[in-house]
């Protein structure tokens, strides 16, 4: 089976500034890859390259074996969807109408959404647990619900890969749990997920793989158990980080040291 996404020596420079360099990344069907790195290191840039938004990169990105640069915007959107950070969403549409937008590229400019589209959107609303809000305007929803709405819109594209830029950064603990559980359910259905986060504990919870953007030159990827340790994280963030094993959660918990 083809890997969902492989990058070969992916680099991106903005004007003369090298943002990411020689990223070799690989993700298989149903895997969750969590990208960690300090602020401004280029996590969003990397995700925007992978999702086809930024195309002036060097190196190669393959999606299901095809070179991304040879694919049309439409074909790419049927394989891969981007979940951007939800804080700034401006739309006043209802949840249902907003999710329908994910179906846009399945139609020509002259067509309207059909019953299939509506059924798909209804199923997704059920999946993201917002049944009671289908006809609610996005502007009157909470931050957590809006983030779920954005994920829902991406799912309406029926993608095999979801790329998520800090999907939990603006959310409280309960909403973080809701989103992480959803990610786990989606990956069990075979959808590959690449997400960035500031919280190594999330990588511990849902990541099959972890990718570290250490500086603008190095990308290190491996299975979570091997990569996610105190030394790597301390080096990554440039501050002391240590972990303890929590028995009731049955996993390591990472915390920052203040010395």
């Amino acid at each position: 089976m083809e890997s969902r996404i492989i990058t070969k020596n992916l680099s991106f420079a903005y004007k003369t500034k090298q943002i990411i360099n020689n990223v070799n990344l690989r993700i298989e069907p149903g895997q969750v890859l969590v990208i960690l790195g300090p602020n401004g290191i280029g996590k969003s840039t990397l995700l925007n390259c992978l999702s086809g938004v930024l195309t002036q990169y060097n190196g190669q990105i393959c999606v299901n074996g095809d070179d991304l640069k040879t694919m049309t915007i439409k074909d790419l959107s049927h394989q891969l969807a981007l979940v951007s950070q939800g804080v700034n969403i401006k739309s006043n549409l209802t949840l249902f109408d907003y999710l329908l937008l994910g179906r846009t590229s399945f139609h020509t400019i002259f067509e309207q959404p059909d019953d299939t589209d509506k059924r798909i959107v209804e199923d997704i609303i059920e999946e993201i647990g917002l049944n009671d809000y289908a006809q609610t305007s996005l502007q009157s929803m909470s931050g957590g619900q809006r983030q779920l709405a954005i994920i829902g819109r991406a799912l309406a594209q029926e993608p095999q890969v979801l790329i998520m830029d800090e999907p939990t950064s603006a959310l409280d603990y309960r909403n973080q749990t809701v989103v992480l559980k959803l990610i786990r359910r989606l990956s069990s259905k075979g959808i590959s997920i690449i997400m960035s986060t500031h919280d190594p504990n999330q990588a511990q919870i849902i990541g099959d793989l972890v990718g570290l953007l250490i500086d603008n030159q190095t990308y290190l990827q491996g299975v979570t158990k091997q990569i996610l340790n105190d030394d790597n994280l301390s080096e990554l963030y440039g501050t002391s980080i240590s972990s303890t094993y929590n028995e009731s959660l049955d996993r390591k918990i990472f915390g920052i040291g203040m010395d």
């Binding site: 925007n48 999702s51 086809g52 938004v53 915007i73 439409k74 790419l76 959107s77 049927h78 891969l80 969807a81 981007l82 951007s84 700034n88 401006k90 739309s91 549409l93 109408d97 329908l100 937008l101 994910g102 846009t104 590229s105 819109r153 991406a154 594209q157």
Partner: peptide, 15 residues
């Protein structure tokens, strides 16, 4: 409706 989204999102929904 789709065109009132931000430019990046419009691109990733496939138009």
């Amino acid at each position: 409706n789709a065109l009132s989204l931000d430019t990046y999102t419009i691109k990733t929904i496939g138009i």
